[in-house]
Simulated scan of single mutants.
Amino acid sequence: MVETTSGLRAALAEASAPEWSVRVRAARGLASFADVPEAGAALVGLLLDAADTAVTRRAAEALARVGTVAAVRILALAVAEADDSQADWMQTGVQDVMAEPDGAPGLAAVCGQLARDPQAAVRRGAAEISAWTDVTGC
């Protein structure tokens, strides 16, 4: 438990680093903590990174790879806030994961769950992600 907490704290600290590669590492580390509010807030910030599109893309990859409701909900919130360029890089990140042999098989089901989320931004973002996965019925 202590190791998990220290890993979360370290990743949260890295999320605001000036180096893009450190922020990417933070996104990868934080993705597994998507259900922790502080991690979620940091991840939205990384997805909407104004300084480097690599951070946006890799954060989207990390969350799609985790694929939990909490992880995809964060991605959906960011998609709803993103400008066109950010959304394009998030889409690329999601599609990178989908192209892998193991892909993200549960992503469509999670989008389906989020389509009923009480927050309109989450529903909009989930619909967009669903379109990226090219899966019907989500």
Rank of each mutant, 00 (worst) to 15 (best):
A60Q: 05
A41T: 12
R58V: 00
F33E: 01
A70L: 11
L75Q: 10
A64S: 15
G67E: 04
L47R: 01
T56V: 15
A31E: 00
L30I: 11
L43H: 04
V72F: 07
G29T: 01
R28W: 07
V72W: 06
L75E: 15
A34F: 04
A39I: 06
L48F: 13
D52P: 05
V69H: 07
A78C: 08
V69K: 08
R28D: 01
L48K: 08
D49P: 00
G67A: 07
A64T: 15
A50D: 13
A39P: 13
A64N: 10
A64K: 02
A70C: 12
R65K: 14
G40W: 05
E38Q: 14
E61M: 08
R58P: 00
E38Y: 04
E61A: 04
L46C: 09
D52L: 09
A54T: 09
D49Y: 02
V44K: 10
L43C: 05
L43N: 03
L48Q: 12
V69A: 12
A59E: 01
L46S: 07
G45R: 14
A39L: 04
R57L: 12
A62S: 15
L46F: 08
A64Y: 03
L30R: 09
S32N: 09
R57G: 08
L48I: 10
A39E: 04
T68E: 08
P37E: 15
T68M: 10
L30G: 14
A70T: 09
A59F: 01
R73K: 14
V44Q: 06
R58S: 02
T56R: 10
V36R: 00
A64W: 03
I74S: 13
V66E: 15
G40E: 13
V55G: 00
A60F: 03
A59G: 05
T53K: 14
A34Q: 10
R57T: 10
A54G: 09
V72Q: 07
L75V: 13
G67R: 01
D52M: 07
P37C: 12
E38G: 07
V36C: 01
A70I: 07
A50T: 14
A42T: 11
A60C: 11
V69T: 13
P37F: 08
L43W: 01
V55C: 02
A64V: 10
A60H: 04
A51S: 15
D49T: 09
A71I: 01
T53R: 14
A42Y: 01
A71G: 06
V69S: 12
V55D: 00
